[in-house]
Design a binder for these strands. Structure first.
Length: 594
DNA sequence: AGACTCACG
DNA sequence: ACGTACGTGAGTCTC
């Protein structure tokens, strides 16, 4: 049982502050509860800086502000669990957390990025072999669940302090593990400094013009109504168009469309767009269904969902940028996912027009050009591909030119498209089948094409084979900066499973190195931007793209700064080029001269 | 809870 | 004979 002292008087608070001020580092752990008003209330904070016990400060009012200068002192290092969230909670309470030092969640993620879940209690049992008192013991579960406010301070103190103390011991254990696996540098130089950067992005949010979304959702809902009626008339039956099962029955049982050659899922014939498109000539209803599907998706996922997620207190959407989700090192975005906002088509433009700059600001977007392929060229040390990028060539045209041994200007759009498909496919470990499908050629042609490709880019071929071999030898692969992904499936006796692991082995160093580079860029940009343009903000990251809200008068210098910083984020064997666009909103963007 | 579908890089 | 490119998150249906 962890000894937890409850800090329930001004005198005790002062004593604790004195002790904290003397520490090199401490763990803190905020207990919070969502109120019915959907605001977050701080119940209390526990602190730990020694194994002999922890301290718990109940915060019925604003007691946490007593610790403001401790939290804001860069020299006193802050450790803990899910520090990004804690950073945000403190910020909302007027405290700018400084000295962020060691996040056990993030450490556990780097040690095994495939887990997706890094609950503190799981880490405690896995790394310390202890079982902390489960939260259910205090507040129950299911229908009988009660609020934190309903249990005694002594109980919360014991619960919170126990975890703060465990986290304190976890820090040293995880630091050692990171060191043993050569991950400490990546952790300290990249992932930890990224925490405040992401926290600020989430706190700032992005401005949304919900009028645009609401007006268009009404329009699209009417349109959907019309399309459904047409469909029901054609097939002479009403059914739920959103149900793949009912749709399958109508198409293949009632209308007796021949499903030969269609992909099958676990429950039957697939009705996904890629399959339905093959049936367009079989029945006129197919095109209408595809049209319905597209509009219904855009309407429910974006037009209707986004306005609901606008925070009434800021008028903006504050998504989460998750740092411990992906197996490759990328970020992910949720609540809502702002990394899958439509980008192609008419509706995409409508939706992106709703991502607006406030008065006096512009939206500025900067995207790395072909970053994955540049990473391939550099990791593979492929002389030919490096030369193409150094020359600033159109890489897909150049690839086509070399494969078919024709001058670049003689490359037709079809040949360029085929080269583009394989250039992308390389980073996924693509086979002939997929290439044939993607490039619209036969499998035989695709096979020849791949052979030729690897003759031209011999370095790439060797790199891919070395990467597969490394995965088999070590059981993991890694990025240029040492980020790892373990692939135990590579040893599977089932050939298909092992093949899947091989493709992951090929993809991860490429996708992951690109993600590392983007994270370095974000840290450098976040550090420099306030000096260049104090009111400008970085608001989104979409894997190879950064989006900013920039004070109109600063657009040019911010564009220059962002482009230069992205270019110098890492030193590869090829230059890191980026495109910069500016507009009133995320939909209507124009390239600018720098 | 899992399957399906589909939006993005 | 079978499945068929890597990484995500969300809405909807179905059980």
């Amino acid at each position: 049982m962890t000894k937890v002292e409850i800090i329930n008087s001004q005198k005790k608070i002062e004593d604790l502050i004195k002790k904290l001020a003397e520490q090199r580092a401490f763990v803190f752990n905020i207990e919070k509860e969502e109120l019915p008003s959907s605001t977050l209330k701080i119940m209390g904070v526990s602190f730990c800086f020694e194994e002999k016990g922890a301290y718990y400060v109940p915060c019925p009012r604003s007691e946490i502000l007593n610790f403001k200068f401790i939290f804001e002192d860069q020299k006193i290092k802050k450790d803990g669990y899910d520090l990004k969230n804690n950073f945000e909670v403190l910020c909302k309470n007027g405290i700018n957390l400084a000295g962020v030092d060691f996040d056990v969640t993030l450490a556990a993620y780097l040690l095994n990025p495939g887990a997706r879940n890094y609950k503190l209690d799981d880490l405690i049992s896995a790394k310390l072999g202890e079982t902390p008192t489960p939260i259910e013991k205090l507040i129950g579960k299911g229908k009988k669940k009660i609020n934190l406010q309903e249990i005694s301070i002594e109980e919360i103190a014991a619960y919170s302090g126990e975890r703060a103390e465990a986290a304190w011991r976890l820090v040293e254990i995880l630091r050692e593990e990171l060191k043993e696996n050569n991950l400490l540098k990546l952790f300290l130089d990249l992932e930890m400094p990224l925490i405040p950067v992401l926290a600020k992005m989430e706190l700032d949010g992005v401005k949304i013009d919900d009028d645009i979304l609401k007006k268009n959702s009404k329009r699209v809902e009417k349109e959907l109504e019309k399309i459904s009626e047409k469909i029901f008339k054609l097939v002479k039956i009403k059914f739920n168009l959103d149900s793949p099962i009912q749709l399958r029955e109508v198409l293949f049982d009632k209308l007796k469309i021949n499903p030969a050659g269609l992909r099958r899922g676990k429950t039957g014939i697939s009705t996904e767009a890629g399959e339905l498109i093959k049936l367009k000539s079989a029945h006129p209803v197919v095109s209408l269904i595809l049209e319905y599907r597209e509009l219904a998706k855009l309407c429910s996922t974006y037009l209707l969902a986004l306005p609901r997620l606008i925070d009434p207190s800021t008028g903006r959407i504050h998504a989460n940028f998750n740092q411990t989700v992906t197996s490759t090192g990328r970020l992910s975005s949720s609540n809502p996912n702002l990394q899958n906002i439509p980008a192609k088509g008419e509706m995409a433009l409508t939706i992106r027009k709703a991502f607006v700059a406030p008065r006096g600001f512009k939206i500025l977007a900067a995207d790395y050009s072909h970053i994955d392929l540049r990473v391939v060229a550099s990791l593979a040390d492929d002389k030919n591909m490096i030369r193409a990028f150094r020359a600033g060539a159109d890489i897909h045209r150049e690839t086509a030119s070399q494969i078919w041994n024709i001058p670049p200007e003689k490359v037709t759009p079809e040949l360029r498209q085929a080269a583009k498909t394989i250039n992308f496919g390389v980073t996924y470990g693509m086979g002939a089948r997929a290439l044939a499908e993607g490039a619209g050629i036969t499998i035989e042609e695709a096979k020849k094409f791949i052979v030729k490709y690897f003759t031209v880019y011999e370095g790439v071929r060797n790199f891919l084979e070395e990467t597969r071999q490394k995965a088999r030898d070590l059981g993991y692969v890694e990025t240029l900066f040492g980020r790892r992904r373990y692939l135990p499936e590579i040893y599977s006796p089932v050939p298909q499973i092992a093949a899947e692991a091989e493709r992951m082995a090929i993809n991860m160093p490429v996708q992951g190195t690109a993600a590392d580079i983007m994270k370095f860029a974000m840290i450098k940009i976040a550090a420099g931007l306030p000096k260049i343009s104090p009111h400008s903000k970085m608001i989104l990251q979409v894997h190879d793209e950064l989006v900013f809200e920039v004070a109109t008068r600063d657009v040019k210098k911010v564009a220059k700064f962002v482009q230069e910083t992205m270019a110098s984020a890492a030193k590869l064997k090829v230059p890191l080029a980026s495109h910069i666009e500016v507009g009133e909103n995320w939909g209507e963007m124009k390239k600018i001269e720098i």
